[in-house]
Structures are given as C-alpha cells and as structure tokens.
Design a protein around this nucleic acid. Structure first.
Lengths: 314, 314
DNA sequence: CCCATCCTTGCACGTTTGTTCATCCAGGTT
DNA sequence: AACCTGGATGAACAAACGTGCAAGGATGGG
C-alpha cells in the first residue's frame, strides 16, 4: 500500500522537518486536504506518538501535593471549575487514554476493569502497535442486563484492538450468587488460565466505584446486586469498590459478606501488579478513592482538578 | 515559578485533551498568544516529546531497500529533487536532531564527532532533560584556524546543553604532526580519561567526510592538512573519512600514513559503541558513505532522499 | 530615586490547518 | 450493462494558530 508510505512521509515532513502541509502536498503531488488527512491518520494509527514528561518533581501544584501525601504518581487534569461531571469524565478519560499509550508497550500485559469510567477511556484510546502484548479482563461482568459499548467484552476488545494485543475475556458474572460457585469455577482450567494472565499483568487500569451520588456506578445500577445487598453494604460501612471488591473508608475489606462472592482481584492481589493506574472523575468518588489509596492499590492516579482539590482538602 | 506549571498545564490541555488554545487561554486567564507561546515552550524545553515510529519493516521504500541491503536502520528524509545541497543538509540535520532526542536518554553517553554536518545538527537540537548523561567529543579539533559555532567545543557544548549532560572535551588537534606525539599524549591521564569516556559511549553521532566536491569538508578545508598530505591520500585510494580516520572505497584503512596521526576512533574502535548514527546529506558523500558502510561503522543512517537514491543505484 | 534594559503581554494581522460538501472512482451486485 | 456503495479527493470556507509590534512591568545599576 502506497498509503502507509505516504502517511509516514507526511508525518516525517510535518513533525520532524517542520514543513507546512502545503509544501508537503506539493512534494507528494496531492492537495493540502489530503496531507491534513495523512497527518491525522499518522496520529490515529500511532505512527506519531506525543508524550508529555512533567518536569522532574518540582512545582507545588496539586499533583505534587498528592504525590507528597500519598507517595504515588498523580496526574491532575486541568478542567474549569464549572465543568459538568460528564465533561470532566471526558477530559480525564481522554488524558488517561493518552498517558496509557505512553506507558504500555510490547511484551506487556494490561489488566482492565470495567465500568462507566473505563468505557469512557476506551472511547479515547489512541492506536499504538505493539507485539507480544495482551489485555486481560480483571473482573467478571457477564450479565444479560448490560450490552453495547458498555459491555465489558467490547471494552476489552477496544483496548486489545488499539494496541494490537491479545484479548483475554473473563466470562463470569460480576458477583456470584453463591461463594461455593466461585470456588468451583476458580478450579476450572478455562478460568484459572485467565487468573494466571491477570497475575502476570504489568499494568492494571481501573477506577473506583462510589456507592452514591453523581453518575451511577455500573456495579450498583446494572442489576448485579439486590436491594438487600446494598443495605447490607451500608451497614458494613462500605464507601465504594475497586474491581468489584468493596472497601470501607479506612481501606479495609475483610469480613464484608459480598466480597466472598466478588470476582475481581482483592487489593492484596492487585498490589502484586507493578503499575496500578486509577482513573477518577467526579466529586462523589472522593470517599472511595481515599479508601483505595489507604488500601495501597494505586500507584498512578489520573484525576480531574476539581476532584483532586476535594481530595487534598479532605 | 508559576511559569513551569503553566507550560505543563497548557501542554496537557493541548496535546492530551485536544483543547483549543482559546479554551486553554480562558482557563489560565490569559490570551491565546500566550498559550501559543506556552505550548511552543513546552516543545522547545522537552516537556512535550514527539516521536515517529516507522510501521514495522514493511513498505518497500528506499529506507527498506537500504535496510535490506546493508542490514542497518535507515531513515530516508524526503526532500524535493530540486533542493539545494544546503537545504538538504538543513532538512536532514533537523530530522537527525529530532530522532536523536528520541534515542538518547538518562544515564547514557553520547559520542559526537564534528564538522559541517554535525554543526548543522547542533543547530536543530531539541531540548530533552536527562540525568546522569554525558556528551564526549570523539576526535580532536583544537586549532587556531577555526572558531564560532563550527568550533568543536561549542558543538559539544550545544549537545550537552540540550540534554543537560556533562561535556567531555578532547583538547587535541585533529591530526598530530608526529605520530609519537600522539602516543605520548594518549598516555597522559587527562587525555586517557576522555578516551575512557569515549569507550563507554552508548551512541555515536558522526557523518562522513568526502575528499572532493559539494560543500567542503572541514577536515580538508580547515587547514589541518598540508597540500602534500592530500596528494598522498589520493595516491592511497582514499575516498573519505569517518571521525578523521581515512577510508578506501572498500572500507579498509590500514597502511594509510595519515591515520597514524589521526585522533578519532578507528572503525574497529568505533564498532564497540552499540548505536552508531551516521548523518549524511549531499551527493558527493555517496562514495565515502559506501566505504563507511563496508567498514561496518554505521548502525543507524539518516540520509536525504536524493543521496539515498544515489546510494542504492550505485 | 531614576533610568536603561530586558522580558513578558495582548492585539492584530496573515498564514496555516481542519472539515464540509460535491464529485469521482473502484469493486461488487443485480 | 446499469446500478449501487463505500471510500478517496480537491475546492472552498471557517476555525485555529504563529508572530511582529508596541505597550507595560520587572530588574538592577547608577
């Protein structure tokens, strides 16, 4: 295909030689418009990669405050204070998608949770061709009540597609109805193979679920839980979840009944993954995020400015 | 400095969130112009890094032909056929500078030769902050007849400055008048320290010198050699040089009298550096480039399209 | 305290870029 | 063969961008 070659040529002349698109068009014997499209395609297909490197450690911005307090890498996404929750989610997820593509590379395994936030990230993924990499679903979601782009399978497929990675699905419900079923399934070879891949993950990508307020968290609204379950959670002091594992405000999670039936990795298991990226947008997520930080499951945080401020002022 | 923070914010909003400069200006309470300048500054200071990755191995372009024939990584810089030698040098050196900043990083040592081509590259360097890195001059050039930006010392300083690297100068002439002086100097601790750094280099950057035609090569025009020397070189079948070591068309270089007095690393020594980047622009360099390729001193070639075509058609 | 100098800012302008739309072409279908 | 369909193309327009310029503000030396 001559097209691929032209994409590379146009990108090289535009980004490496600072030529104007008009000049490039003349060289390629085509129109400016086409060159504009070639360059766009170069960005979209990952021929061009744009990386941001925060100047080392200084600057007492919000990000540094969070870094200092929690010992994690924080990326604060600037958004106007007035931005709606939806717009904030959009900005944060786009930023997270771009950052992720600078972190993920060949021969790596990416573990992905699912939910509203992750679906938003998936929409903004930039392509980056890699080899020998894989994407693995971190927690179950097979359920008849969800479908479309929010369906976990499509979400995993979107990540795998963007990176040319192998996809590993996790065909179990978000929560089992009986803990014994989980133990039984975990022994099945088809399932334990996926669990093995999860354990080999180099990067985990997830958000936190809030029990209440703001945009509804899929875990609570998608019909996985019965009304009785939610009351029980409240009574146990649960403030939110990470990968379908519920946490109390202090980051603990043992002796919460539902967790025995959950399918996602516990914080202890999650912590074995070296890089753990948490994407957060929305005020109502401050409490569960704080719990997640206490549980030590986050190494890299991508968060909108407003929520970040709420976090440090807490 | 609030400025650094703003540069990062603007870059993030512009490159990661695809916001328009006008919107960013509103958020930062400043004008579009300032945002434009902030973004520019982000590029110039290395906060933003733009990388091109050629789609793996396919596409039968000129680059692939060279790669296939010589087993090296070739980057062909597209230039109109009509471009003057000077413009070609400009395009190639800009491309080389940008590529180099994607290859070089913290804790690395960069060996740099000098000459017209390298001076051109130095002019286009993009900043990239690194730590623990060093730039070392590969061959001598101390000489009263050169000065200004072409002076080797300034050249090394420009590279070191761009990367925040430590600079190691090599205060010897390009050629000694007596081979014994060289042996004597090589034993001096101040000199052998530099030679040690050279041997630790991870990346070497150099061009090839042509004996005749086109833009004059510094080695021949700057007064390092006597008229008699040049006649002798001709008689010995020399077609050019790499780091002041002269090569015959077949890539051999032993028994060439001048080489005993030269200060640059021989091809054998050069080959110990893992990545060896050769920057070439200008038709008259085809012959010496071919010799350099035969000598196996090149692993990465940055070359303009016209010269590349001349090379493969050779 | 004043002045010279350097650096920064916003405006205005011209240039460069993204995108819509009508058109065209290739490939496959009836 | 005629027809449809999806994708590519260039013209034209509107949006976005870069930069020279003059004004404003800080800095440091007298």
């Amino acid at each position: 295909m001559q097209r691929e070659q032209d994409v590379l040529t146009a990108a090289s002349m535009y980004y490496l030689q600072d030529m104007t698109m008009e000049a490039i068009a003349k060289h390629l014997h085509t129109s400016r418009s086409t060159v504009s499209r070639l360059v766009k395609r170069a960005r979209e297909t990952g021929v061009v990669e744009i990386t941001l490197r925060p100047p080392q450690g200084r600057a007492p911005g919000l990000g540094q405050q969070i870094t200092a307090r929690y010992g994690i890498d924080a990326w604060v996404v600037p958004v106007p204070d007035v931005t709606s929750q939806i717009d904030r989610l959009d900005q944060v997820s786009m930023t997270a998608a771009r950052l992720l593509s600078t972190w993920f590379d060949s021969e790596m395994v990416l573990g992905v949770a699912w939910g509203t936030t992750l679906a938003a990230v998936a929409q903004h993924l930039t392509r980056k061709p890699t080899r020998g990499s894989a994407v693995v679903q971190l927690n179950g979601a097979a359920n008849t009540r969800t479908s479309g782009v929010h369906y976990a399978g499509d979400l995993i497929a979107a990540f795998a597609d963007a990176y040319g990675a192998h996809a590993h699905y996790f065909p179990v419900p978000a929560f089992f109805d009986y803990a014994e079923t989980r133990s039984a399934m975990w022994r099945e070879r088809s399932i334990s193979r996926v669990l093995d891949v999860q354990r080999r993950a180099d990067v985990a990508l997830f958000s936190v679920g809030a029990i209440s307020g703001g945009l509804p968290s899929h875990v609570y609204s998608a019909g996985y839980l019965e009304p009785g379950d939610i009351e029980t959670l409240d009574a146990e002091g649960v403030v939110g979840d990470v990968c379908t594992v519920f946490l109390r405000a202090d980051g603990t999670y043992s002796d919460i009944a539902l967790n025995d039936r959950a399918t996602g990795p516990t914080p202890a298991e999650l912590r074995r993954i070296p890089q753990r990226v948490c994407v957060v947008a929305g005020d109502n997520k401050v409490a569960p995020l704080h719990a997640a930080l206490r549980a030590g499951v986050v190494t890299h945080l991508v968060i909108d400015e407003v929520t970040a401020r709420a976090l440090v002022e807490r």
